[in-house]
Amino acid sequence: MMDNLISIANSLYEGDYAAVTDLVQKSVDLGLPPANILQEGLIAGMDRVGRDFKEGILFVPEVLIAARAMHAGMDILRPLLAKSGVKSAGKCVIGSVQGDLHDIGKNLVKMMLEGAGYETIDLGTDVKPEAFVEAVREHKPKLVGLSALLTTTMVNMKTIIGALQEAGLRSSVKIIVGGAPVTESFARDCGADGYASNAASAVEVARALTV
């Protein structure tokens, strides 16, 4: 039974979507506790992916397909985890800010967060402040992720954070900002809680903010 979990971790590391789906289902059928499948299978594999990515051994595309495999495993486990009272790492509402149509970076962050066990609500691109407010009210996430690629649109991050403030929701969430023109000091100035310079560090920042 332990072998199954090791195989899940290995297949996830390889980004083998089909094998991960198959092995997670088998493990569930064998009666393994969903929390163990998550911790010792999926997350163990994803941690190895994260470590090797940091070392420069794995490249971004490999992390993405591993995250996708993780997602497939999570689709099977999520209802079972909820039933057994195990909480997900948390929800994250994510989107590219108003005026910004760029979504590759935002999508990478989303995949990485999902790979780390977060449940994401993707609002897409060119997202108006009121849409963020609405989504936070509806989904009650722990995290909000704001993405911008342009110096002309990154100023909207401040507007969105202000809108959440006005709606009385600001203190209920941690806000992470990112994107090419964004810097640590800009993040501080616009009132965000965290700044991630790339998709991998977004996970670290998210974890640090949601402990």
């Binding site: 980004g15 490249f59 595309p61 490999e62 993405l64 397909i65 590759i104 999508n107 990478l108 995949m111």
Partner: peptide
């Protein structure tokens, strides 16, 4: 399209 998460990319990138 985005090619970043394609098997083709992983197979050939190195």
């Amino acid at each position: 399209a985005v090619y970043l998460d394609q098997t083709h990319t992983i197979k050939n990138m190195r």
